[in-house]
Design a protein around this nucleic acid. Structure first.
Length: 646
RNA sequence: GCCACUUUAGCUCAGCGGUAGAGCAGCUGAUUCGUAAUCAGCAGGUCGAGGGUUCAAAUCCCUUGAGUGGCUCCA
């Protein structure tokens, strides 16, 4: 007999070799029907694997992450089985579960799959699921595994097997499909009741751009049809929040084929929004001892040869601008740091003036690959809320913590409570991608790790994600569809001060090298605004929104009074306009609601006589009649409330 | 950059070999109205661009721009 310990601490005895499914059944038939996998001593396993020693057990159902992952991974095998049935000769790469569903990378030879094939694939998957096939696990020798996939002529699986050790190889089979797989899987295909093939994409085999591109088929499955329908509705709702759609509808920004891909044009309303963000941060930076500077949009090529950017990115960038002068070349600036380094170095610096903090909303141009461009989140010309802090090594930690605090302050004021902080370090396997010595890198990386820990920040760590000149702490926020974007960034850099030979004179009257911190709390205005749009669905905080109120006269008779009201609002610094169209009030309200204008101020006979407005709030309805002073107080109170949260 | 798809009026879309259509927006007029669409009329497009096939191309083919979903990349 063995002891099985349950999550609540309860211990029960079972025969040795019992399975998790048996244990579930011993608790209730109901549990046994819905359980998908089980963690035995912390390892997620098939329900049918025998348990041979004292163990802890946690059951995984559809409602937990492990349950869903197992379910979707098994669904990927079902997709593969369907593809093999429909398109014999298809070769298979990998087919993992992802956050929402799963994919399988396949090589369909000369056949090109299109969305027209989706329903056929879905039908086949459902048909196969209804055969109630078990997922059967078998351990195979490496030789047998190689033999099987050699006969099947699947070079991708053979390559995967090549990287595995003999004795660790398992196959899973359901129906007529056998796959190389570590598992675990759900017990039976019958649990898969609803299927949706979502989209197709190309994906390089093993993520290597040099290798063949396979077709990646994304799909999702559910135990109930209703859940699939709810998911599809959710996706549709998320698409309504897309910043590209809202940016057009709310007239915030546009792109022009003639201007060029990835070069956004900010419309008046978008500019109003963006400038408020800029003003907000500029004011805060002044408070925190930053000094604004301004530098040109181009710089001599020599500047970037010095910084190392030319060597690193020159060939893949916007190419140099030539002048009538032979041999003279300028680059559109891809970043502001070299310019700021020159400002630091224009005269000798004393330790007494450090740290210095140069801040600039600097517009930079980077030739991103065409396939990378994505609305405002990935563009070729964008403005960083950049600043470079030059300090002594002793000051490094405090300066880093200060930048960290500012970044968190900015995110909090804009209502981003869900973000992840990622420490991006050098890839120790591929040091040639970076400039600078090991010693300098180790110092920089240690500084970031220690400062983040000291600030009590929960972080993840990614190797190989560092900038070429130094490690970074990045703040990542998700968009409406769950895609992660890097916003704020703080980077420690020992390298550029070295390359630009920056110095300060210490208290010992000797020359020393300062350390540099690059930091941008928004990251870029473009990306930040995009993410703000998606988070708020266009219902911006009152202090940020381009237009706070619109005055709606009931008819032409009240136009004069409405215009007077607008003047009063302007005196109270409320951004507003009058809807002077000859339309019914219902129409004006509808349009204002659709434009997401926070307040609608209706003026008819009663209000005109009393000098008041009937206030309606977006999404809330009628708030009653107010004097202009009362309304102005209401707006101020709302703004204070929105800015108070931390 | 790579794979797949998309590209028709300001916007959303229909038309998919026989010489361009709707709704909304716009303009003009009527209406002067109380909390999510007043009525009528008018105007608006070399069907992203360039080639080709055909008696005939928005429609089929090729090249190319832009966009979408991914991959790769991201100073």
């Amino acid at each position: 007999m063995i002891n099985i310990t349950f999550p609540d601490g309860n211990v029960r005895q079972y025969a040795e070799g019992t399975t998790a499914l048996d244990v579930a059944k011993s608790i209730s038939e109901g549990l046994a029907r819905v359980v998908l996998a089980a963690s035995i001593n912390g390892e997620v396993r098939d329900l049918s694997r025998p348990i041979t020693s004292d163990s802890t057990i946690v059951f995984h159902k559809w409602d937990d992450k492990e349950g869903k992952q197992t379910y979707w991974h098994s669904s990927a095998h079902l997709l593969a089985e369907a593809l093999e049935a429909l398109y014999p000769g298809t070769k298979f790469g990998i087919g993992p579960a992802i956050d929402n569903g799963f994919y399988y990378d396949v090589d369909t030879g000369d056949r090109v799959l299109t969305p027209a094939d989706f329903s056929k694939i879905e039908q086949k998957m459902l048909e196969l699921a209804r055969t109630k096939s078990e997922y059967k696990r078998t351990e195979v020798s490496k030789a047998d595994a190689i033999k099987y996939f050699t006969e099947k002529n699947d070079e991708y699986k053979l390559e995967l097997i090549d990287g595995l050790e003999d004795g660790q190889i398992t196959f899973y089979q359901q129906g007529n499909f056998t796959d190389l797989c570590r598992g675990p899987h759900i017990p039976n295909t019958e649990n898969i009741k609803a299927v949706k093939v979502l989209n197709l994409a190309g994906a390089y085999w093993r993520g290597d751009i040099e290798r063949k591109q396979l077709t990646r088929i994304y799909a999702i499955t559910f135990p109930k049809q209703k859940e699939l329908e709810e998911y599809l509705v959710m996706i549709e709702e998320a698409k309504k929040r897309d910043h590209r759609k809202l940016g057009q509808e709310l007239e915030l920004f546009m792109f022009s084929e003639k201007v060029g891909a990835g070069l956004p044009l900010w419309l008046p309303k978008g500019t109003a929004l963006r400038q408020r963000l800029e003003d907000f941060l500029k004011k805060e930076q002044i408070k925190r001892g930053y000094q604004p500077v301004i530098t040109p949009h181009i710089g001599s090529k020599k500047l970037y040869v010095t910084s190392g950017h030319w060597e690193k990115y020159g060939a893949d960038s916007f190419q140099p601008i030539r002048t009538p002068q032979e041999g003279e070349e300028f680059l559109l600036k891809p970043m502001n740091c070299p310019h700021h380094c020159e400002i630091y170095g224009y005269r000798p610096r004393s330790y007494r003036e450090l740290p210095v903090r140069f801040a600039e909303f600097g517009t930079v141009y980077r030739y991103e690959m065409s396939g990378e461009l994505h609305g405002l989140t990935r563009v070729r010309g964008f403005t960083q809320d950049d600043a470079h802090l030059f300090c002594t090594e002793d000051q490094l930690k405090d300066e880093f913590l200060g930048a960290l605090d500012l970044t968190r302050f900015v995110l909090a004021k804009l209502g981003f409570d869900k973000f992840t902080a990622q420490i991006s370090l050098r890839d120790p396997e591929n040091k040639s991608k970076y400039i600078g010595t090991d010693e300098v890198w180790e110092k920089s990386e240690r500084a970031i790790i220690e400062a983040a820990a000291e600030a009590g920040l929960t972080t993840t760590t990614e190797l190989g994600e560092a900038a070429f000149y130094g490690p970074k702490l990045d703040f990542m926020v998700k968009d409406a569809l769950g895609r992660s974007w890097q916003l704020g960034t703080i980077q420690v850099d020992y390298n550029l001060p070295e390359r630009f030979e920056l110095e300060y004179v210490g208290s010992d009257n000797a020359k020393h090298r300062p350390v540099m911190i690059h930091r941008a709390p928004f990251g870029s205005l473009e990306r930040f605004v995009a993410v703000v749009i998606e988070h708020t669905a266009g219902n911006f905080p009152l202090w940020l929104t381009p237009e706070q109120a619109v005055v709606l006269p009931i008819s032409d008779k009240y136009l004069d009074q409405s215009r007077k009201m607008l003047e009063l609002l302007k005196e109270s610094d409320i951004r507003a306009s009058v809807d002077e169209r000859n339309e019914k009030i219902g129409r004006k309200i509808r349009d204002a609601e659709m434009a997401k204008t926070p307040f609608m101020l209706v003026i008819g006979e009663k209000e005109a006589e009393a000098g008041t407005v009937a206030v309606r709030e977006h999404g809330q309805g009628d708030l009653g009649t107010m004097t202009p002073a009362q309304f102005s107080e209401l707006v101020k109170a709302r703004i204070d409330q929105q800015l108070k949260r931390n």
